[in-house]
Design a protein around this nucleic acid. Structure first.
Lengths: 138, 138
DNA sequence: CGGCATCCACAACGATACTG
DNA sequence: CAGTATCGTTGTGGATGCCG
């Protein structure tokens, strides 16, 4: 059923083509949900980590500094539901679960990485503003 | 003072070069602050809007569907402090304030737009996952 | 018109404890 | 190891009102 034309997929959600074409500036655009997952506090960092290589759950937790197991699990489920992350569970004890990016997720990760790279590259200029401006960040 | 070498700027914040080179995966990387502003719920949308043209405050509020005046003001201040947004206030009654992107902000907006464009372009594929998978997003 | 201050509801989050 | 469940806390964000 997922081989239906895109227009039919949209119709199933009761979404007009207009809403999809108009960008996410409109309040009820469904893209906002995906944007929320991608740009969530840990979503960005998870994508950056998984772009490097496949990780197991606790490996990923160690890799993404400061994340709790709860939030990591939730974030992974979001990205999994959006089709960006693939979960591979090896049936054995103790459990062994590997997370990796899907082709779709790799496409997203490229954009996220470009943003992240720009931020890191531009940090000196931005911090100069923190110093020059009136207030430190917060 | 903002003409100091980048290494000196970092030193003023007590930041090692190591922290800046290691990407934002480490918990105490200062880039996380900027990432937070850029990828905040309204930060992304404000950048997308201001990339099109200069807006006045209430214009911008109308443009960014669903944002409250409180959050719009806060978001604009974050981006302003980071040197991404320029605020121009015309001294007159009633007040007239214009917001626009700085050159730095335009650079950031390009990356944000690429991510946004990818999301909108990929929505059909992502929604196919919502349908095929077990759970709707929520 | 632009925006800050206050208040309040709710969602996000972290810590902990527990299970397959 | 890889989660889920519960709980308490913090933070986010909307509504309202006031002031330049």
């Amino acid at each position: 059923m997922s081989s239906l034309p895109a227009s039919d997929q949209r119709a199933r959600h009761g979404l007009s083509d207009k809403l999809l074409q108009g960008d996410l500036l409109s309040a009820d655009c469904p893209s906002r949900e995906v944007l929320k997952h991608l740009t969530s506090r840990w979503g960005v960092l998870v994508l950056l980590a998984l772009e490097q290589r496949t990780y197991r759950f606790l490996e990923l937790k160690r890799q993404v500094g400061g994340v709790s197991e709860r939030m990591l699990a939730q974030t992974l489920q979001w990205l999994q539901n959006d089709g960006l992350v693939h979960r591979r569970a090896l049936e054995q004890v103790p459990p062994h679960v590997e997370y990796s990016l899907t082709p779709l997720g790799r496409e997203a990760a490229v954009r996220v990485r470009e943003l992240a790279d720009w931020i890191e590259h531009s940090m000196p200029r931005i911090m100069a503003h923190w110093l020059g401006g009136s207030l430190p960040p917060a």
